[in-house]
């Protein structure tokens, strides 16, 4: 017994992957972390195992299909009790683009406890290594009987990024005109609009976002943009606070005083390049007052 404990203390930490019905993106990138020297999990003192019984860390990919569920839970139950569980990609956490399908039984947290999430679609190998690193920290802390540190300062860009990776979305409420095209084109349902007392609020959930950037492509004013921030791994307990949000405040119509969303200067510039003062005046008017100003009578 003694010898065994000592062996595991110095031997490699064993990783076991379970595919719950993924598009294979996360799985292929995990294969890279066992085949390509630059990203080899060996550098973290880990190696992959083919046996669930040996798993120190379980890596879960995919949205969990109904057909795969029993086998997934069987394999998971085979893994030792003190394993650390990592959800790879956004699918296990929210279902990603597959959410609400008749054939999907996620999110995974309904069936088993997750410790670390690695958002991405799929996460790049650097992000996978960072997430596995976070799992190792939890494992170490648990062994030492400590509470693992919650928010290590890791939001630093990778030194060797010559080209920016498609990372977290960023939202600039000042440029938003509340047209909601972003929500319309989002396959993953990652964007919500809510009308409040003071304005309209946008919330974008990074654990649902699949980092395709289509919202930004169709955004007429550049209110949504793709950042190069790919380092998004976090404790599973923080899954629901991984958000981007902002509020577009209402302003009174300069004609009648009704609360409206004024037209952002970005939209005027997109439409007119160099708007004249007459056009500028329109931006703070409600539709009825705009009609009054341009055609003399409000349309009914």
């Amino acid at each position: 017994m003694h010898i065994e404990v000592e062996e595991t203390a110095v031997g490699p930490v064993r990783l076991f992957r379970i595919n719950t019905g993924s598009c294979n993106g996360c799985d292929v990138e995990l294969a890279v972390t066992s085949a390509v020297t630059e990203f080899d999990v060996e550098q973290l003192g880990c190696r992959y195992t083919e046996s669930a019984h040996e798993a120190d860390i379980v890596l879960i990919t995919g949205p969990l299909t109904i057909r795969a569920r029993d086998e997934v839970l069987r394999l998971y139950a085979q893994a030792p009790r003190d394993k650390v569980t990592v959800a790879v990609g956004v699918c296990p956490v929210s279902g990603g683009v597959f959410r609400d399908s008749y054939a999907v039984d996620g999110p995974i947290e309904r069936h088993l406890p997750v410790d670390v999430n690695i958002p991405g679609c799929p996460p790049r190998p650097q992000a996978l290594l960072a997430g596995i690193g976070a799992a190792l920290e939890i494992r170490r802390a648990r062994r030492d009987g400590e509470e693992p540190a919650r928010n290590p300062d890791h939001r630093k860009h990778h030194g060797t990024d010559n080209f920016p990776a498609r990372g977290r979305m960023s939202y600039d409420a000042k440029a938003c005109v509340d047209c909601r095209m972003c929500r319309h084109v989002c396959a993953a349902g990652a964007i919500r609009f809510e009308a409040g007392d003071g304005g309209v609020r946008l919330t974008l959930w990074h654990n649902s976002c699949v980092f395709c950037g289509l919202c930004s492509h169709y955004c007429p004013t550049g209110a949504l943009s793709v950042t190069g921030d790919w380092r998004l791994d976090h404790r599973a307990a923080d899954a629901f606070t991984q958000i981007e949000r902002g509020e577009v405040p209402y302003a009174p119509c300069t004609g009648c005083g009704e609360a409206i969303i004024p037209t952002a200067p970005q939209l005027l510039h997109a439409a007119f390049r160099r708007p004249n003062p007459e056009i500028e005046k329109l931006k703070n008017l409600c539709p009825a007052c705009r009609q009054l100003m341009s055609i003399g009578v409000p349309r009914r």
């Binding site: 929210s94 919500r192 919330t203 959930w205 649902s208 629901f240 958000i243």
Partner: peptide
């Protein structure tokens, strides 16, 4: 899921 996101907020 969204109820949890908004509650966390």
């Amino acid at each position: 899921l969204w109820d949890k996101v908004l509650a966390g907020e």
